[in-house]
Simulated scan of single mutants.
Amino acid sequence: MRSYVLTVWNFLDPIYYFFNRLQCLPCKGNILRVRLTKYKGREIMLSDGTTINRNDFLVKIHLHNAKLLYELKEIKSELRRAKMIYRGMQNSLPELEKFIRRHPRKEEIKGIIGITSLNKASTRLGFEVFDISHPLYRLFKTFAFLPIELLSNHNLSIKEIVKNHKPSYLFMSTNMLTERYRK
């Protein structure tokens, strides 16, 4: 069943990619797709002193879920899957730093933002985790992530996924990204 769903997902992924104006980063093994966006949430103060306000420019990051699910489909161990995703992020973030450094609006980009339920090791990568405060948006994201969670977590029920995998915002300032990942 998972194979059929992944096949359909791989078919639909380019359509999603097109309509969300995503760009792939050029490095081998990259698991991120990105786009420039204006932030529409509440004010956020990051630990390095960067304040992110409404309408500030951020680079929104998306995990390449279709690619990841295909690569992780045979791996049963949650720990091994988490390590693969972590290493994929470590390999992708230097290219993201280079993408921002070369972007025509680089001076206006204050940081990066993502939404994920995979936030346990995010702080080790340099991200800061913030709860999604709006209850309807949090609920929407919980159910939007449900297919990904069901496909990637072989042993969990829908109830366990909804209870234990709460989506959160991930933020990192461009200064922090440059400090940690500039090659």
Rank of each mutant, 00 (worst) to 15 (best):
R101V: 11
D131I: 07
F18L: 15
E107P: 03
F99R: 02
P26Y: 01
K38G: 04
E74N: 15
K76V: 11
R105Y: 13
A144C: 13
F19V: 14
M89I: 07
R54F: 12
V34P: 00
D48I: 06
Q90G: 04
T37H: 09
F145W: 05
L22P: 00
K76C: 10
F127S: 00
E179C: 02
K163L: 10
L150C: 09
K60F: 12
F145C: 03
V5L: 08
L25F: 06
L177C: 11
T37K: 14
R105A: 12
I158H: 04
F140N: 12
D13R: 09
L177R: 03
L125W: 06
S168P: 00
R138V: 02
E160V: 08
P167K: 08
L36Q: 05
M1S: 15
Y16E: 14
K76F: 10
M1K: 14
Y70T: 09
N30R: 03
N164D: 12
V59L: 08
K38C: 07
L79T: 14
L72A: 00
L79K: 11
V5T: 06
N53E: 15
F99I: 04
G88S: 06
P135C: 05
L63E: 02
S77T: 05
P135L: 01
I158Q: 04
S168Q: 12
N164E: 09
P167N: 13
E128F: 04
M176E: 13
T174A: 03
T178S: 14
S3L: 11
S133T: 07
I112F: 05
T116C: 06
G41E: 05
R182G: 08
L46M: 11
R138W: 04
F145M: 05
L79I: 13
M176N: 09
K28L: 14
K120V: 14
I161W: 01
R124Y: 15
L72H: 02
I161C: 03
Q23K: 13
L151I: 12
Y169M: 03
M45F: 10
K83S: 09
T174K: 02
N30F: 08
S117D: 04
G114Q: 01
R81S: 03
R87G: 03
L170Y: 01
S152T: 06
T123E: 08
R101I: 12
D13K: 05
K106D: 08
N10D: 15
E74R: 10
K73M: 07
K183W: 01
P14V: 08
G111H: 00
Y70H: 07
L22T: 09
R180D: 03
I31E: 00
M89N: 02
F19M: 09
I148L: 13
